[in-house]
């Protein structure tokens, strides 16, 4: 759930827009470079974008008694690195802001920053860190997607706390309030997103070995590959 239209003061809205813009521009560049260099990856890029489309349309009930939706940005960040997701996430957010009155144009910068910039980078970072520690592929994918999802809504909470500090508790007090609305609600949904991302990655390992090897998710020669199918069997 993103920050609704008009609910960030103008100065904050502009500041987050300025903060997001370079990431999106850089993302467009790396996306066009990727497509030009490897035209065959267009399909998988489309599939990654489609995954965020599906997941951000799924409003799910959570343990707090309210609803929110996952983001789906972890998968694309793991496959194509985070800059590409800055673009695909922005497209999803624009679609929702323009047609569904969900999120908004004035809050687009802030929402892009949380969902299309910080989420993918945190998810990708968690994934890479776990992979470096020799954690099995699917476990790393799960925590990558989980971290991308949860960090997105932690950032949303921070953004709102900065804009609306609590009269008694200040920014930290407000962070507690917004965090309990967004971040706590999001925990079970982040687990769901992790599981769904593992599911799609398993299907990709079955169907697109060559592509995953080129992207470095699977290592040619089989060490990671054996590991990947091995985890599949255990998971």
């Amino acid at each position: 759930m993103h920050i609704a239209e008009g609910f960030l003061p103008p100065a904050h809205a502009v500041a987050w827009g300025v903060a997001s813009a370079p990431f999106v521009v850089h993302g467009v560049r790396s996306l066009t470079r990727e497509v030009r260099k490897h035209p065959e990856s267009t399909l998988l890029l489309g599939a990654s974008g489609a995954f965020t489309f599906v997941l951000s349309a799924l409003k799910l009930p959570s343990v707090t008694g309210s609803c929110s939706h996952p983001t789906g940005t972890g998968l694309g960040a793991i496959l194509f690195r985070p800059p590409v997701m800055a673009v695909l996430g922005t497209i999803t957010l624009l679609f929702q802001a323009l047609l569904l009155a969900h999120g908004g144009l004035t809050t687009l910068g802030a929402n892009v920053f949380s969902m299309a910039v910080v989420g993918p980078w945190v998810g990708y970072g968690a994934y890479r860190l776990l992979r470096r520690c020799d954690v099995p592929l699917m476990v790393a994918v799960f925590f990558g997607a989980f971290a991308a999802d949860l960090s997105t809504y932690c950032v949303t909470s921070v953004q709102l706390a900065l804009a609306f500090p609590d009269p008694a508790g200040g920014v930290l007090g407000a962070l507690g309030k917004f965090g309990s609305v967004f971040a706590v609600t999001q925990i079970p949904l982040a687990v769901s997103e992790g599981l769904l991302t593992v599911l799609v990655m398993r299907l990709l390992v079955q169907s697109s070995k060559g592509e995953l090897t080129r992207l470095g998710v699977l290592v040619a020669g089989g060490r990671t590959e054996a590991r990947a199918t091995g985890t599949g069997a255990v998971a």
Partner: peptide, 11 residues
């Protein structure tokens, strides 16, 4: 089960 965004507006 309202949306978290609507709840944030309330806060």
């Amino acid at each position: 089960f309202t949306g978290a965004d609507a709840e944030a507006e309330t806060v």
